[in-house]
Amino acid sequence: MADIIDTRTDPETALVRAEKVLSEGFPVAIPTETVYGLAADATNPDAISRIYEMKGRPRFNPLICHVSDFAMAEEYVIFDPLSRRLADAFWPGPLTLILPLKPTSKVHALASAGLDTLGVRMPDGFSRKVIARFGRPLAAPSANTSGKISPTTAAHVEADLGSKLTLILDDGPAEIGLESTILKVEGDSIKLLRPGGLDVADVEKLTGLSVERPASAGAAIEAPGMLASHYAPGARVRLNATSVQAGEALIRFGGGKIAGEDKAVVVLDLSPSGNLREAAAHLFDYMKRADASGAETIAFGVIPNEGLGEAILDRIERAAAPRDGEAV
């Protein structure tokens, strides 16, 4: 089982142990402001392979590489002026940019899934200290079995991957609770590849540009989180529930009761006050709680498709998508 070190009470021990494990080519579960990540040396093919093996993740699904500062990022990728403007405004924070790899980049092709671009993010919080101490980018997808619910606490990581890991760093619950927003600049346009913890409206306000949404769900995989079925609990998921069937788990929003909820196995409200930021922070934890209730189906109430609601709905829709072997 993994050792768990609380970064809030023993930060130096956490940094020393993390540097050692990462230097040996093994992944470490690290806290970020979005979700907990399964981090390994982005320049070491053996370390990256261990990420894919631990998660059971398809190798055509690229990994985000996390950096501690702009100098580190510029060693590996090329910034255009608009991407740099976005990074200046929103880093450190929940923004991943898809950028061209430098010809001299030492990030291994396994991390980029062989693409000539790389997803790069500068996280906030203790993970940034880990990266700075290690001195190289860390490839770090969410620290969970591939396709399942992302972890927002160290306990979530331990329950899923604890038997496979050497070290988990515990910095308490993730502040944002949703993965990063992924953007790609093409000329004078900005494409949204995955909605996330950065509200797209803030990007549009900064740049004066309308962010383009994907034309179809069948777009080529350019970034993590683009698979149709993802973030899935063991239970089935249905959306926009206006009533609840006996034996279902209910996750609602905004405090309003839903018909039949007295028959639900469990009732959870993402934000009784209707705060989308609070709802985002609770989403994955509540999905795990609902899944653990034994219900065969998790019913989600109506959530507004605005602000962070766009990212919340993206996760729920992917959780509800047909899985391998199921009819579409």
Rank of each mutant, 00 (worst) to 15 (best):
I5A: 00
D6F: 13
R8K: 15
P11V: 03
E12H: 14
L15A: 02
L15P: 07
R17C: 01
E24I: 02
E33Q: 08
N44S: 10
N44L: 06
R57E: 09
D69H: 13
F70L: 00
F79C: 10
D80G: 03
P81N: 00
A89D: 10
F90M: 01
T96M: 11
P103R: 00
V107A: 02
A109P: 13
L118D: 03
R121N: 09
K129V: 02
A143E: 11
K148Y: 08
I149S: 12
A154N: 08
G162D: 03
T166H: 15
T166C: 13
D170Q: 06
E179Q: 06
I182G: 00
D188M: 04
I190A: 06
P195E: 14
L198A: 09
P214F: 03
A215Q: 11
A215F: 04
I221V: 13
H230M: 06
V237C: 02
R238L: 05
R238Y: 11
L250C: 08
R252T: 04
G260H: 11
D262N: 05
A264K: 04
S271K: 04
S273Q: 12
N275E: 07
G294W: 10
G294Q: 02
A295E: 08
I298A: 04
I298K: 02
E306K: 13
L308Y: 10
L313N: 03
A319W: 01
A320D: 04
A320T: 09
G325Q: 04
A327T: 13
